[in-house]
Amino acid sequence: MQRQINRWQISLAFFCLAIFLILLMGVVWHLPYIHQLDQWGLQNIREPVTPERTWFFKNITRAGNPIWTGFIALWACFFALIFKKYDIALFVMLNVGIFGLGVMKIFKHFVNRPRPNILHLVDEGGSSFPSGHSMNAMLLYGSLIVLVYYYVKNDPIKYAFMTLLTCLIVTIPMSRVYLGVHYLSDVLAGLVLAGFLLIISKEFIFRYKPKEK
C-alpha cells in the first residue's frame, strides 16, 4: 500500500529552507538582524557562565560530535542490513553520512564565517556557519525519531524515546552557543537546513511504506 506524500510536512520542509536562506543572506551580507539575533543568543544562552552549566553543556555537546554520530549511524545501518531493512540503512547513511558531512562542509567552505571572538570553553577549529553539531543532532536524532515512530509499537516506550531524542536536538545546539564556539544564527541555520533535508529524505525514502501496525 502506497503512503501519500504528506503535504504539510513538505510545506514545513520548505519553510525550514526559507528560514535557512534568510539566515544565510543575513550572514553573507552582514545584515543587522543577524547581529541582533546573535547578541540575544549570547546574552540569554551563554550567560551566566558557571562551573555547573559548563560541565553540563560540555557533556551534552559530545552527543553531537561527528565521531559519535557516525558511530551511532554505522551501528544503525549494520542492524538494518542484518534485518534486510535497506530503506532504513539508506535513510540513516544519506542523512548522517552525506547530508551531515558533505552538505555542511560545502556551506562552511563557501561562507567561511569566523567563530565568535569570545572565550571558547572547548577547543574548536574551522569556520562557524552553519553549525555542524546542530546539523548532526537534527539529522541523527531526527532520523531516530522517525524510525522509532515507524517501528516501535509500544506507545509509552515510543514517546519516551522521542522525547529524549527531541531534548538532544534542542540542547546540543544550545551547548554550542554556551561554549562560545557558535553564534545563535549558526545553530539555527544548522537546525533548519538539516530539518529540510531530513523531511525531504523521509518523505521520499518511505514514500511506498505505510506505517507498520
Rank of each mutant, 00 (worst) to 15 (best):
I118H: 04
Y183V: 02
I34K: 01
N95T: 00
L147D: 07
A80D: 02
F83S: 12
V146Q: 06
A189L: 00
V103A: 11
Y151L: 12
P130D: 01
G70K: 06
C167H: 09
P51C: 08
F83E: 14
N112Y: 11
P114I: 01
A18V: 15
I45S: 08
M174E: 11
T61C: 08
V192K: 01
L140E: 01
A194W: 04
Q39T: 13
I60L: 12
R46W: 02
R113Y: 00
F129E: 00
H182I: 00
V192C: 14
Y151S: 07
Y178V: 01
R3I: 04
L24T: 09
I169D: 02
G97H: 02
L144S: 05
V187A: 03
T171A: 14
R207G: 03
M174S: 06
H133D: 03
I5F: 07
F196A: 00
L37V: 02
G102N: 03
F161I: 11
N117V: 09
L42S: 12
R7M: 14
F206P: 00
R207C: 10
L37R: 10
P116Q: 04
L197H: 02
N65C: 10
I5L: 15
N6T: 07
N136F: 01
L168Y: 11
F57S: 03
Y149F: 13
H182R: 09
G100R: 01
K158P: 06
A63T: 15
L168Q: 10
F56I: 12
N59Y: 12
H182Y: 02
I10C: 04
L101I: 11
L23Q: 06
L101K: 08
G132V: 05
I19L: 15
N44C: 05
P32Y: 08
L37E: 07
F204C: 05
I98W: 10
P116M: 02
F20L: 09
Y33M: 14
K153T: 08
H120P: 09
G180S: 04
L188F: 04
L37S: 10
K209A: 13
Y149I: 07
F14K: 09
E212V: 12
K105F: 12
P173N: 08
L119N: 10
W68C: 08
Y141R: 07
I67A: 14
I60P: 00
I34R: 00
K85Q: 14
L31D: 04
N136W: 04
R7N: 11
G195S: 12
G70C: 05
V122M: 11
S175N: 10
L188K: 00
I45L: 15
E212N: 10
I45P: 10
A189R: 00
L121Y: 03
K211P: 02
